[in-house]
Design a protein around this nucleic acid. Structure first.
Lengths: 137, 137
DNA sequence: CAGTATCCGTGTGGATACTG
DNA sequence: CAGTATCCACACGGATACTG
C-alpha cells in the first residue's frame, strides 16, 4: 500500500487533456471497469432499467447464466451500491432486485456503449472478415 | 446455428424502449462488448486518442501489461478495425499504432464510461465499505 | 423460490526464452 | 525494436447437488 506516491501517475509524457486517467494496475477506475466489463454485470444492469425483477425472472431472461453466477453478480452489484436487494419474509421466499439511483446513472452510460456497438457491428464484422481474408490461419 | 429464429429474442415480457438488445449468449453485441470489456483493450483505446504510439511506448505506459498481451490486444483491435498498424521498413523495426476513424468514435463512448467511473468512484468505495461492514467475511 | 456448497474444466493472461 | 513461441498458473465460471 504505497500511499506515499500521492501524485496521479498518468504517464509522464502525457499532455493531452483527453488522457484523464492513469493506467496503473491498482487504478480505481480499472477496478470498477473490470466489474462492468465482466461477463454478466452489464446484462443485469441493462435488464433492471426502470424495473424491479425477481431472481428467477432474471435467471430466465438472461440466456445461459447459471444460478451461481447470477447470485455472484447480483451480490457484487449490491456491494457496489448499484443494485438494491429486497427480501420479502414470505413463504416461499421472494427477493426483488432493482437499480439504485447510482445504478440508474450507470445504466445510461452503459446504454450508450451498447448503442455504439449496435450501430457499428456491421462495420466491425466487415473489418474482421477483411482481416481474416488477408491473414490466413 | 439456428438461424431459423428470425425474431429478435429480447425477453418476452419486455415492453420498455430502453431494452434494445437481446440477452442471448451468441448476441453480437455481447461479442463486441466482451472485446471492449477485456483486460487491456480499453486502456489501449484510451491511450491512442489523437495520437500515434509505438509498441514499446504503449508497453511502458500501460502498467503491468506483458509483451504478449499487448501484441494480442493490438492484433484484436486491428482485426476489429479499431486500430491501424503501420510497419516502417527500417532497422531497427518501427511500428506505429493509431486509432482508425471507427476507433475514434469508440473512444468517445468509452471515455464517457471512464468519466462516469471517475465521478462515482467515491460513492462506490463508500457503498463497498458499508456492505463489508454489514456482511462480515 | 432463492439461494449455498463443492467440484472441476477452460480461457485469460503472465513469465520466460528466442528471432528477424 | 517488435515481435513469436511455449509453458503454465490461477481466476472465472459451468454443472451438479443440497437447503431454509
Amino acid at each position: 500500500m504505497e500511499e506515499g506516491t500521492s501524485e496521479v501517475p498518468r504517464h509522464s509524457d502525457c499532455t493531452d487533456d483527453a488522457c484523464q486517467w492513469d493506467h496503473r494496475e491498482d487504478c480505481e477506475v480499472r477496478q470498477i471497469l473490470d466489474r462492468i466489463g465482466d461477463k454478466w454485470s452489464m446484462l443485469v444492469i441493462a435488464l433492471l432499467d426502470n424495473r424491479c425483477m425477481r431472481f428467477t425472472e432474471l435467471r430466465k431472461t438472461i440466456d445461459g447464466i447459471s444460478q451461481r453466477m447470477l447470485t455472484v453478480t447480483l451480490r457484487q452489484l449490491e456491494r457496489d451500491g448499484l443494485v438494491r436487494r429486497t427480501v420479502h419474509p414470505v413463504v416461499p421466499p421472494r427477493v426483488d432486485y432493482e437499480l439504485t439511483p447510482l445504478g440508474v446513472t450507470l445504466h445510461a452510460t452503459v446504454q450508450s456503449l451498447v448503442t455504439w456497438t449496435e450501430t457499428h457491428q456491421t462495420e466491425i464484422a466487415a473489418a474482421r472478415a477483411r482481416y481474416d481474408a488477408l491473414n490466413p490461419a
